[in-house]
Design a protein around this nucleic acid. Structure first.
Lengths: 223, 223
DNA sequence: CACTTATACGGTACTCAGTACCAGACGGTA
DNA sequence: TACCGTCTGGTACTGAGTACCGTATAAGTG
């Protein structure tokens, strides 16, 4: 009975081998052999060989969903950006693992497709949440979709910059990118008013928000 | 020597069988048997079983690229929307084939992932084009990415509505959606001016544009 | 303690996608 | 006739993923 659980040893062995020989040159048998477990155990822990690369995707999806579920409708936009920040933090916390995954997804088309499909799931959660927030009518469907896509795009932009080593402080860049992105939508909310919203605070956005709202007389377009 | 080329007979046989038994329940052998060709011929015509569903994806990518390549920089935004319109027209022209593909991609996760990866390729072309148009600097990278994502999102929104039978006149809806989407970006171009650009013409956008530009004194934010 | 049950693991055998390689059929050309 | 490029079919192989079975250990129950 080994100390580490099988699932963890499998991911470690898999990433090692992918790094050494490449993804296609590594078989599932190779992975299970190095991990010291049976082949059946692999497919019990992961639905497919590709899934080893994204071990806790489901968990991440779940935490996003719960973050959005417990959101005050008055702070809907903040909730979405905070949920996106959750994803960013997760990858940054992974460190070298995230970098290894990035190298793999860039070189193996199948993995790239898989990752894109994964981000689309985040986007779906965002879209449904924003659409509910906008009332759920058919006239707001496109707007919700655009906003969700924009948030995910901005997030991915910053994340990729960090993965490439171009963003030493990703969270600050994230704040700036999100401010730009959300402002895109807030600017047209009331056409002649041109209330350009740009918040660039560090972390506790929900703490700053009440003060901002008081300042603007409770008509600010930042939900 | 049969009348129809092997490739076409394979796609027809494949879509028939997918419709009858489902994607996973259909083997490549089933397809080649119905098409009356050898198994080797299948993998010469298509790189994989999934690729039968998207027979002319490469062609479409090529026509988009050439549409963008021969674009006047002064009409960059129009070029992007027109390139997106190319995709829409392609699917609409496919008719029942596009509907069958939609049914498949909705029910088979692997195909859905594949399709999403495909749209991401369009988005990449758009992003690179817009980025070049904006000067290619690092400060405009996010903006280009957001714009490309927005155009693709708006296109997909209308396309999916048509695929669901909710858009009897997709091109008109496309015009409206694109106008909304592009306006999102044009509105912030010059902050105090609030020149809200919304063109909702039928088809010949490039024909209307010179007049519009004259009207605005050649400072309009619509590239 | 003995007994049952659940759970995790390993092994075997199978299906099927995808690849590599070889061999024949066909049309055009000298 | 002989040569050549191209399209085609057949055979054999690798490897992912599934189904099923047997077993060991741990946890609960009398």
């Amino acid at each position: 009975m080994p100390a580490k659980p099988a699932r963890q040893r499998l991911t470690e062995a898999a990433f090692e081998l992918f790094e050494e020989r490449g993804y296609d040159q590594t078989t599932v048998d190779d992975i299970t052999e190095r991990a010291g477990v049976g082949r059946t155990t692999f497919f019990r822990a992961f639905r497919s060989k590709e899934e080893v690369i994204f071990p806790d995707h489901e968990v991440l999806l779940g935490s996003i969903e719960s973050r959005l579920d417990g959101a005050d409708p008055r702070t809907a936009l903040v909730a979405v950006t905070e949920a996106a920040r959750l994803v960013l933090r997760h990858y940054v916390a992974e460190g070298e693992l995230a970098l290894a995954r990035y190298r793999l997804t860039r070189s193996v088309p199948a993995l790239r497709a898989r990752e894109i499909a994964g981000t689309q799931q985040y986007q779906r959660l965002f879209r449904e949440f924003v659409h509910r927030w906008l009332g759920g009518g058919p006239d707001t469907a496109l707007r919700a979709e655009l906003l969700a896509a924009a948030v995910v795009t901005a997030h991915n932009h910053v994340l990729r910059r960090w993965l490439r080593g171009q963003a030493p402080d990703p969270e600050t860049e994230f704040d700036a990118a999100m401010a730009d992105t959300v402002a895109l939508f807030a600017a047209r909310e009331d056409e002649p008013g041109t209330t350009v919203v740009a918040f660039r605070t560090g972390k506790d956005l929900s703490a700053v928000l009440p003060g901002l709202r008081r300042l603007l007389g409770d008509e600010g377009a930042l939900g």
